[in-house]
Amino acid sequence: MFYIGLATFLLVTDHVQRPYLQYSAKRWSLITGLRGYLSSAFFVMGFKVLAPLLAAFVMWPLLGVAGVVSVGPYLTGCLVQFIFEKVLEKRQSSCWPLVPILFEVYRLYQLSKAMHFMEKLMFQMRGLPKSPELMEKSGALAAMIVTFEVLALVCIWSFLTFIQRLFPSRPVAENY
């Protein structure tokens, strides 16, 4: 539902803004052309995709489907964001800055839901008798929660970096 609503919102926004705001490759290059921004963005996005994949892969023997269920929506969101960005770039839409902003906020929501899911699984194991298998599973759940917390910090950092580049200081803004 979120992706359908977002697509509708972006379609309406593009339709309304198109007569007034033109797509500016110069403005986009001012954001991405700053020293270190592109390499940092590629590194962060790679980390945001590879870390949950690696965590789910490593924890698969202990968590099974629960690990995939916790990272699936997050990774789907990363893929959908990439698709939205490519479509808006192809259409030369002026509402392109909305996509990273909205997806980073939604990604934080997805991570909080994944952490809540892992915590619920931990609480379900609370009354069970202690065994080595139970201890390994609880350790795997804790590792997934820590992974999601680190990803949340990286997402916040990525979000703030994008906002900082989108609204640059006065000397850079004069180059528009």
Rank of each mutant, 00 (worst) to 15 (best):
S112D: 14
T161E: 12
F123S: 09
P52C: 06
K113Y: 02
G36D: 05
P73V: 05
E85G: 00
A56Y: 08
K137M: 13
Y23W: 13
K120D: 11
F9L: 15
A7R: 08
F43R: 12
L21D: 13
G77I: 06
R170V: 14
E85C: 09
P97H: 03
F43V: 13
T76L: 15
F9I: 13
E89T: 06
P19K: 08
L111F: 01
P171E: 05
I145G: 01
H15F: 12
L75G: 00
M118S: 03
I101R: 01
S70A: 15
V172E: 09
L128W: 03
L102C: 10
L34C: 02
C155N: 15
S40T: 13
A143D: 00
V87E: 08
A142F: 08
V44Q: 08
A41L: 10
E149Q: 09
F43M: 13
P52T: 00
A140S: 08
Q22C: 03
A51I: 12
E136N: 08
I83W: 12
P97E: 13
Q124M: 14
H116Q: 09
P61I: 00
W96C: 04
T147Q: 01
V87Q: 06
A7I: 02
K26R: 15
G72D: 08
G139T: 03
F47H: 04
V172H: 11
V68C: 09
K26C: 03
L21S: 09
G5I: 04
L121A: 09
C95Y: 09
L98K: 00
Y23K: 10
G77L: 10
L160E: 14
R91I: 05
Q81Y: 05
A140M: 09
L54I: 15
G36K: 12
